[in-house]
Amino acid sequence: MSVLIVIPARFASVRFPGKALAPLRGATGQAKSLIRRSWDAAQAVSGVDRVVIATDDDRIRAEANGFGAEVVMTSSDCRNGTERCAEALDALGGGFDIVVNLQGDAPLTPPWFVEALIDALTDHPVAEMATPVLRCDGRALNGFLEDRRAGRVGGTTAVFGAEGKALYFSKEVIPYTADDEWDDQIATPVFHHVGVYAYRPAALAAYARWTPGPLEKLEGLEQLRFLERDHPVQCVEVDARGRQFWELNNPEDVTRIEDILSDLGMA
């Protein structure tokens, strides 16, 4: 199975303009841009044939070229990362069995999260797309609840059926839990949706032809376009193996991510 990783990146993020170029300091105090750390995360994934950064911004292209990344320029009309991945695949001429969308705001994504998606599509030939979900411990869920109390949109949560078929994704914390404070190490009933997707090329091409539905527009979550079109999304539960995971959604997340980088000893 030939695998392409696309890292979609744009400059005009609504919640954090220019975040792809935001510096993140690691354990040694060295600062690397968000897009550089996302590229490094992609390079750690095994079984991948090619990695590209897809952007419409010359500033991001210049930064990526500076650390040796391959860049595909895409249209500013792309409404989300999945559309940008579809356009990048088309620009490359296809030729891949699996396309992974490793979003440019998730530099803490462990390689085994992505490898689990590749395995899921390899082992289930009828599956069109897959995405990882991570059971929140109390520390992670407290962070979600803190964000919502402060009026911030933090991570995305997912609910799914017994066979892993997604029922819904939301920027609210779902399912509802009566407790508003959890012990740090306890396993909770809430699953963090990790912003990584693996697609069959045909599913990716179909997605780009569909118009966004009302739920996608309300939530601002691209994967809901599949659910609204009755195309199943396979959730793959992954194990953090003791690592904390967080995405860069708001300026306030910089400190959180830098603390995790330091805890992990990542330069």
Rank of each mutant, 00 (worst) to 15 (best):
E146G: 12
Q223K: 14
V45F: 00
R256Y: 11
A42C: 07
A86I: 03
G95Y: 05
R229V: 07
D263M: 13
A31S: 09
S2L: 05
G104C: 08
F191H: 14
W210L: 09
H192D: 13
E70Y: 08
V114W: 00
L21D: 04
A54S: 08
D183G: 14
D253F: 06
A150Y: 10
V254G: 05
I257F: 06
M129T: 10
L21N: 04
Y176I: 12
N142V: 08
D179W: 11
G93Y: 06
E63G: 04
E258H: 06
V190L: 10
L4R: 03
I257C: 05
E219A: 12
Q244I: 13
W210D: 05
S76Y: 12
L108G: 01
A187H: 11
L34F: 04
E87R: 02
T131I: 08
V233S: 04
R200K: 10
D147N: 12
G94Y: 04
F245Q: 07
V51C: 07
Y197G: 02
R61D: 09
R241N: 14
V52K: 00
R152P: 06
M73A: 11
A130K: 01
R79E: 14
A208K: 07
V100H: 01
S13M: 08
E181M: 15
S262W: 14
R15E: 08
A203P: 09
L141D: 05
G93F: 05
D123H: 07
A166Q: 05
S2I: 03
E222W: 10
V72G: 00
R256V: 14
A116T: 09
E258G: 04
T109S: 09
A54Q: 01
H231E: 15
C85A: 06
V233H: 02
Q103Y: 12
P107R: 03
T156P: 09
Q43P: 02
D183I: 13
S75L: 10
Q244W: 15
S170H: 08
L24A: 05
A69C: 05
P201R: 05
A166F: 03
F67I: 08
F113R: 01
P132I: 02
M73C: 10
L215Y: 13
Y176L: 13
P251H: 12
G94C: 07
I7A: 00
L102R: 01
V14E: 15
G155C: 10
G242H: 09
G26R: 03
A64P: 01
A130L: 04
V71M: 03
A69G: 03
L108D: 02
G220P: 08
K32A: 11
K32G: 08
D119Y: 04
P17R: 05
A187Y: 10
T122S: 07
R59T: 09
L121N: 00
D57C: 11
L264Y: 11
M266V: 14
A205F: 06
D137A: 09
V238E: 01
L21W: 06
R15D: 09
I5A: 03
L108C: 04
L134S: 04
K171I: 13
V126N: 13
